[in-house]
Design a protein around this nucleic acid. Structure first.
Lengths: 177, 177
DNA sequence: TACCCTATCTATAACGG
DNA sequence: TCCGTTATAGATAGGGT
């Protein structure tokens, strides 16, 4: 689409590639907005520019993560026809991922998760989850949980990065609600 | 695109909605193929049709999951670029978040999303305490947490279409020309 | 339900500032 | 690099088979 048709291959001219990436990513996300609204479905996407380790996701990093988690769980919940036959394949991947995770620092992941939570609460909850009128009853409980998490975040904020690691490692969220 | 422009809202006519979903999902995936090739980036997407619990992903369920896992690990790998910015961003938002929450700015639309995240975090932390011995174990633990959340989502599905529409319409959608 | 067709609407490659 | 504009390629809603 454009004045000239381009080949389906890596755009060699980097400036152009960057521009194209930006434009297409925006369009991709717009398409996600459209399809979810028009079709009443849930979707998410993640794009990862390996050249500069920049990630972006839709509708938000958290929701994307959530959807994927849900995806992971689908088979056991619905006996989803889709993942069933790929279960074995997944297992292999999981063990492979596990190897990577083993070497990873889980504490940082935890910090990240909480940071993401806040970010999420701040900016994305208006977009997708507009149908849960019936959850009003959980407002109180939710407030407590959010408050707790928020406090955790605030506390972490005043710690030095190194200390945060240690802190998070010994942290336990438990049930606050 | 198409002979008639359609409004950015749930397509009420179900047959049409199904057709549109199928078409757009295909286009979405095609776009993912294009952007990854043209721009040399990694991407994934998951589409979840809650009405029949059918999931689909690109480029594959496994790869989509893998990308998301990488996404989770990103912060610890590139703190300087991602995490640090987020933390700064966070600080400002925390107070604002509290303000919003305190003000009972709890709209229906936000409740489930927040709940989902919080529940998720709880699940994640539980997993943390067990050191994430393996992702398989994590999967089981997460499943329980997510199961609850999923029930909420499913509950939404049984709401009357009209109600759902109303909810959705009250949301800020931006005009898709 | 799934394709196929095509009138239209949309996305975007190239450019210019 | 970032917008705004323009010419084209691409996506797709509605309809027919």
């Amino acid at each position: 689409m454009g004045k000239n048709k381009i080949k389906h291959e890596l755009i060699s001219h980097e400036p152009n590639r960057r521009v194209t990436f930006k434009k297409r990513k925006a369009s991709l996300f717009r398409k996600l907005t459209e399809i979810t609204t028009l079709c009443g479905i849930i979707a998410c996407a993640v794009v990862y520019d390996t050249s500069d380790s920049k990630m972006d996701a839709w509708p938000s990093p958290q929701e994307a993560f959530y959807v994927l988690e849900n995806f992971k769980k689908l088979p056991e919940q619905r006996r989803g026809q889709f993942m069933m036959d790929q279960k074995a394949f997944l297992k292999k991947n999981i063990s492979r991922l596990n190897g990577q995770l083993e070497r990873a620092r889980f504490k940082n992941q935890a910090l990240d998760a909480e940071l993401l939570l806040i970010e999420y609460l701040e900016g994305k909850h208006l977009s997708d989850s507009s149908r849960l009128g019936s959850l009003l009853a959980l407002e109180d409980q939710l407030a407590k949980k959010i408050s707790f998490i928020t406090n955790r975040i605030e506390f972490m904020e005043v710690l030095e990065p190194n200390e945060v690691d240690a802190e998070i490692n010994s942290d336990e969220m438990g049930d606050q609600g």
